[in-house]
Design a protein around this nucleic acid. Structure first.
Lengths: 144, 144
DNA sequence: TATCGTTACATAGTAAGCTATGCAATGATA
DNA sequence: TATCATTGCATAGCTTACTATGTAACGATA
């Protein structure tokens, strides 16, 4: 028996993820950000001043991964961190003017990446694709 | 305007890819291999003795990525490399007994990972999901 | 046949993910 | 209130991906 890569969900998902990341990377490079920073930016654009712990609870990455991403964002001038008023272990995370200024262009870049990726699908197929992915994620998260 | 992560194809794909990789990693850990080695192993289980260049043409990764993966596989005792009979720049890549011995269990682990991920979908939905992914990959590869 | 562009592979450096672990502050409780 | 488990974050070390670049062998051609 052989194993066909091109019919394996795991193989296809991995390949898609790399293509999506590359498409987003190219489109947001002019803004001075990279794909890994996108989830944290999305969350902070909506609610500035959260702690790392609060972000970890909302984004689906491990705490250590986010800690490293935030360190790069600080290095790149996208965020600053301030003392937490009530807990000396924690710090609140705040977007800089630079990060606020690129929000609309970043949204547009992400939407254009999605649009281009799904361009060959009908509106119904796109909707079903999204739902199939959501259900698959839900299954895997439960499945442990 | 806000941007909903859970309705963004790119976000969902990234999340799925990490969940698939984690599921496969857990299932193949007893075999002494890791997910990144899987594509090269699949190809070598079918055609042993290929060069790195030949593998790069079949797997969808960059040459440098494969070079590093092959170095780890050699370190882990999965492959050995021999002089190419006609080209001193190239080397042919050969599976070890250890790598050959785990083939069937590795296939089973990958299939079980896919099965568990798609368990909530009907057979028709699974087939359509695979096709949607194949079409999306094709679109992105063309789109550049 | 000497030169020189091309090819095959390796290496450096970075990002983004993971697990494991360390440390200081918090907070519960004996 | 002194102790000690828990919490919030950082760090170390690894994998897997990328781009850019280096090196040696190949092969075409002047």
């Amino acid at each position: 028996m052989t194993f066909k890569r091109m019919d394996s969900a795991g193989y296809l998902v991995n390949h898609m993820a790399r293509l999506f990341a590359d498409g987003l990377r190219r489109r947001i490079a002019p803004l001075g950000i990279v794909p890994g920073q996108f989830p944290a930016l999305l969350e902070l654009w909506e609610h500035d001043g959260q702690t790392q712990k609060e972000l970890v609870e909302k984004l689906d990455v491990e705490q250590a991964t986010l800690a490293n991403t935030l360190a790069r964002m600080e290095r790149d001038g996208l965020i600053v961190r301030k003392e937490h008023p009530a807990d000396a272990r924690a710090r609140t995370i705040h977007l800089t003017d630079k990060a606020r200024a690129i929000r609309d262009r970043a949204y547009a870049a992400a939407q254009e990446t999605n649009r281009a990726a799904l361009a060959a699908l009908s509106p119904e197929e796109r909707q079903q694709f999204i739902e199939l992915m959501q259900r698959t994620i839900e299954t895997m998260r439960r499945g442990g």
